[in-house]
């Protein structure tokens, strides 16, 4: 019964999806070609690809978390705060447990413990946001604006706003390992996360519940889905991914800071929307989000190669692209509606 309905609905949805993916692929190709033509000697180099592979995993992983919450019809604006708070807790633990210059075999268990603490912190931060949204029925926007302030505030409070640097050498050594002399560890983590979450969404019961909840939360409730538990788990997952991103940021910068990566919040929303996640919930795929991450990284790295473009133009470009994509998607869906209406007559 369930399968039959899914098959009837599938062709329509699939066509829309494939068009979106095709558009994203074209965009990716255009941005790449543009940068390759304008800055060939800098852009199409192994060094550039190496540095891009080290840059995007941290915000890419957070963007996947934000996408999950947007599929349920919510949003998580607290990802950056969660990432920094988790990283700072891990850093504090490392400072406390690992003496300076300790041999690796002595430091390793504490580093593992610190990583676990960070992940637990991410889960707890997410669970708190999920609880506020599902149990206390605070709109996700306000709840996560609040948690973002709260987590960043706690991070400032426990560090007095100072960066936590001088981590054990072993941590950044592990964090910056390159496999086959090519792929940084963070890139592999991103791959695992992207493939894992894509699989979760497409093939698990939980993934299906997310789409159902995002399409119509009341219908999902009456269909017997435990909305509260699904929402809490979604935000916990987003929190967990944020803490992974926090650990990656800490390895790359070799320090943790309460206000690190502030522009990432907007960037994550932009990536999700660009990648085809509907801000009102119920639609979107991780493949699209991943393509959007690549588009953004190409743009960002490419722009860096123009000395006369100020860094602040990045804000203009991110804001502008976000709005253009929204407008474009809206116009497309309006055209599709009109066509459908005509066919109906």
């Amino acid at each position: 019964m369930k399968n039959e309905q899914a098959e009837v609905a599938l062709p329509l949805i699939r066509r829309g999806r494939d068009q979106n993916l095709a558009r994203l692929l074209v965009m990716l190709g255009v941005v790449f070609a543009l940068m390759a033509v304008l800055r060939p000697e800098q852009f199409v180099t192994p060094a550039n690809f190496g540095s891009m592979m080290r840059q995007f995993p941290e915000y890419g992983i957070m963007a996947i978390g934000v996408s999950l919450t947007m599929i349920t019809g919510g949003i998580d604006l607290g990802v950056v705060g969660t990432a920094n708070l988790s990283a700072i807790l891990a850093a504090k633990l490392m400072f406390a447990a690992v003496p300076r210059g300790a041999p690796p075999e002595q430091a390793l268990p504490y580093l593992a413990l610190a990583v676990l603490v960070a992940l637990a912190c991410g889960l707890a931060c997410g669970a708190f946001a999920g609880l506020l949204i599902s149990r206390f029925e605070i709109p996700a926007i306000l709840a996560t604006l609040g948690t973002q302030q709260l987590y960043t505030g706690i991070a400032i409070g426990i560090t007095n706003g100072r960066p936590q640097s001088g981590l054990p050498l072993l941590y950044s050594k592990i964090g910056n390992t390159e496999f086959f002399g090519l792929f940084p560890l963070s890139f592999l983590v991103f791959l695992v996360v992207a493939v894992g979450i894509a699989f979760l969404l497409s093939s698990s019961r939980f993934g299906m519940y997310l789409y159902m909840l995002g399409t119509n939360s009341k219908a999902a409730l009456y269909a017997g889905l435990g909305n509260t538990s699904i929402l809490i788990r979604t935000y916990m997952l987003s929190g967990l991914l944020s803490s992974v991103a926090g650990l990656i940021m800490m390895a790359r910068a070799n320090s943790a800071k309460a206000e690190y990566g502030a522009p990432y919040t907007l960037q994550c929303v932009l990536i999700a929307v660009l990648g085809g996640i509907d801000p009102s919930g119920g639609f979107g795929k991780i493949v699209g989000v991943t393509l959007a991450i690549f588009i953004l990284q190409f743009l960002s790295s490419g722009l860096n190669m123009f000395n006369n473009i100020s860094n602040f133009y990045r804000d203009v470009i991110w804001g502008g692209v976000l709005i253009l994509v929204l407008v474009f998607n809206r116009l497309l869906s309006q055209r599709a509606e009109r066509r459908a209406a005509r066919r109906g007559e």
């Binding site: 801000p279 991110w318 976000l322 709005i323």
Partner: peptide
């Protein structure tokens, strides 16, 4: 368009214009 996403975008646009 959804108000939050739009105003996040325009806010970034205006701030970027001012500093850029």
């Amino acid at each position: 368009l959804p108000t939050l996403v739009v105003t996040l975008g325009t806010g970034s646009l205006f701030t970027g214009l001012m500093f850029g």
